[in-house]
Nucleic acid binder design. Structure first.
Lengths: 250, 250
DNA sequence: CGTAATTTGTCCGTATGTATT
DNA sequence: AAATACATACGGACAAATTAC
């Protein structure tokens, strides 16, 4: 019956079967295991494979259609419309769109929220500022081809970059906003990488499913005089990206 | 107070309420918003805050207990037990115990399994060997202070390092085993980083609870003549480590 | 010290949603 | 389409352990 699926699907896990199957199909699409030539097996075959009823598979497919990963056509079949995992380089010269060049058609970073406030110690320590310094925060969501890839909160010293939110709103790029503010170039000083369960905010902004994972990086960028100018927390949808580093100094 | 929760919690969304609340509490623990002095508010207060029944909160807490984030004691309360993360540097000169120096008392890498076989294409490509080349694999588990931190599978060209398993068994260190085999020094060429749900093997070997996360790195080490000598997959317990990189080349 | 208040653990029952047959 | 089984969520009651007074 459902002996095989019994190993993969859990029945009282708090997640409905159709949603688990949706998650499964999504991840199988990513590894290329589910779909030959971009076409999914028939619903009956899938129901058999997962050891569930056809109606349950249909609910899963409906959800994936809703979120844009699949498109099914009566009489023809169900087809994949979903990108593969992107490889995001974290190096000395980390830039969002430049790093993903060639892996997607369009790039966009959208401003979600901005504010100015006394920064918490974590931020001021990273930026080497006195505790309690006023900082500007920029909350953004980055997308490639309409799919959210990551969201970030960045902090800047309000005394030097008080207007960065407005400049960003115009230029749509932090690199360009910094250039306008007298920072022609900058490099990544360090990056820490953690993995966490997605928070409710992650789930909403990155369009994740509950139980999804995010790769969380904290990083500091510095100008060419080695002065810290930007501290960021970036949260990547872990099933859409891998991070990548090449030959690095100790 | 339950107006707020009403905006965050969705009923009939395919995800059980108790699971959504578990996600919420987990993220609040991480930001430190949920627990004062490491103690969670009483179940009744939480139920009130989220606008649900106490039993639903209990289900959420039980899930977080299962995954190792909370511990509740009858009559006393529910307490946070998220361990502090070790910071594991991935740099040009990545070494296990040297990297964690000062963060723990004892370090140990234990050999779990070893074998020789035709390597799969992923391995041979990384090592720049002809497809189907015989490779030695070493499966290890690394611990600090008795707590498993990571496990790794490393592959070496069998023609050059056919005896590395025996040498490792004696030396208890890959660096020393390579030195014995004529590799006085080596550097990290590249690293990719992904995050996944823990596999059954991860759960067993790293003593994780079900539902835990692993940080998965793939990496290649090369000798001083830039010849690839070692390809590794390392799986870190994500709630015990963060990865760290400093100033790195493009 | 004992007693009451707090807080978690367990049991019952009922209504509704989900999945299969 | 209907019957069945199970999971989810709620409500209440009381027991057991700990803490406060």
């Amino acid at each position: 019956m459902r002996i095989l699926a019994g190993a993969l699907l859990e029945r009282k896990s708090g997640v409905a079967l159709w949603r688990q199957i949706a998650d499964l199909i999504r991840s199988e699409i990513e590894t290329g295991a589910a779909a030959k030539n971009g076409k999914l097996p028939p619903e009956m075959k899938l129901a058999e494979r997962y050891g569930v009823n056809r109606h349950t598979v249909r609910a899963a497919i409906a959800a994936l259609e809703q979120e844009g990963a699949l498109r099914s056509e009566q009489g023809r079949g169900t087809f994949v419309c979903m990108p593969r995992r992107l490889s995001y380089p974290i190096g000395k010269r980390t830039r969002f769109s430049a790093g993903l060049e060639g892996q997607a058609e369009t790039f966009r970073t959208r401003l979600v929220k901005t504010g100015t406030a006394k920064a918490n110690p974590q931020v001021t320590r990273a930026l080497a500022l006195p505790e309690g310094t006023e900082c500007v925060s920029l909350e953004t969501v980055s997308e490639t081809d309409g799919m959210p890839i990551s969201r970030a909160i960045s902090w800047f010293d309000a005394a030097r970059f008080g207007n960065i939110a407005e400049v960003f709103a115009e230029k749509q790029s932090i690199t360009m906003a910094l250039a306008t503010d007298g920072i022609p170039d900058y490099v990544r000083r360090w990056t820490t990488i953690e993995a966490h369960h997605a928070s409710p905010d992650d789930i909403a902004l990155l369009k994740l499913s509950s139980g999804a994972i995010v790769l969380v990086t904290h990083s500091v960028n510095e100008d060419l005089d080695n002065r810290a100018i930007q501290y960021s927390e970036t949260r990547f949808a872990a099933d859409r990206v891998e991070l990548y580093t090449k030959l690095q100094d100790s």
